[in-house]
Amino acid sequence: MGGKVTCTLGEVKNRGDFIIYWGGNPAECHPRHFTKYALMPKSKFLPNGRKDRTVVLVDIRPTKSAKAADIFLQVRPGKDFELITILRAMIKDQKISAEAVAETGVTLEQCTDLVARMKKAKFGCVFFGMGLSMTRGKHMNSAALLTLAAEMNAFTKFVAMPMRGHGNVTGADVVMRWQTGYPFGITFNRGYPRYNPGEFSTVDVLVRGDADAAFIIGADPGATMPQPAIDHLARIPTIVLDPHITHTSKLSRVHITTAVAGISAPGTAYRMDEIPLPLKPALKSPYPTDEEVVRRIKESIAKKPFWMPDGAQMIAAQV
């Protein structure tokens, strides 16, 4: 779980009586999150379902999800980290300045009320979205919120969970952690895995022009990445595996059409709470699966000479 204080959605469904959504819009991006897990379900511990729950939404504007929440807190854009830090101070009864609170766009009364409600909860859960993790502060915002959830456990049960999107991104994190010890931003260029986002993360690598070939699977960076990164993908030999001809396919040297995971290809996908679920394809694809194509490319490369010459000295791991 990467050290975060979290739980499964089953626990939220059965026990979560205080739900915070921070920087996410589940009503439009995860439409069944409310009804299946977080708001509506009735259980032994929450016999009245929605009536037994308090729901808070923290976002920079009132989205469709605000209608589903009991309390909406409008934070000033880019002030999430400040607001989380203020809440962390308030739960420990530390002094905070009025100016600091005013800067976040949320009033002191709202903060005091929220902290009181958080402490009164039996089982609190914070779901955080890309509005928190992809804006100013980025991973520091997520880290602060995870710390807030951890610190709340001095008073009551409190957990945090990221609202993941994009199909099986959670699975990618889990598989990379299992195989290499790191979740993303990895290099094997010394013969063992090393982790350093910013140095080995894709956008940075492409913008700097470091990579001299790219293998893209189940993603379309040609439609989502900054232009300098796309320009570099067009300069180098790019190989794309996708069920469709994508923007990236159009600038690639090799495109291979594959079956769609979950529709015409079997396998496993991870839910946002890191629960693996089997896929049940309803159709039979005329194309091979991703798994088969990647394995065949790997086998073809394995027949060629290994990239590190015989007798070459490995650079020892740095401590």
């Binding site: 195989q179 492409l206 470091d210 699977i217 995971a261 496993t268 991703d290």
Partner: peptide
């Protein structure tokens, strides 16, 4: 192409299965 490269990049893995991710 991948074998000839000095610094090949394997990227994406969102819309695919864990089995394919393991191969990646």
């Amino acid at each position: 192409y991948l074998h000839e490269a000095d610094m090949p990049l394997v990227y994406g893995m969102s819309n695919t299965t864990c089995e394919a991710q393991r191969e990646c």
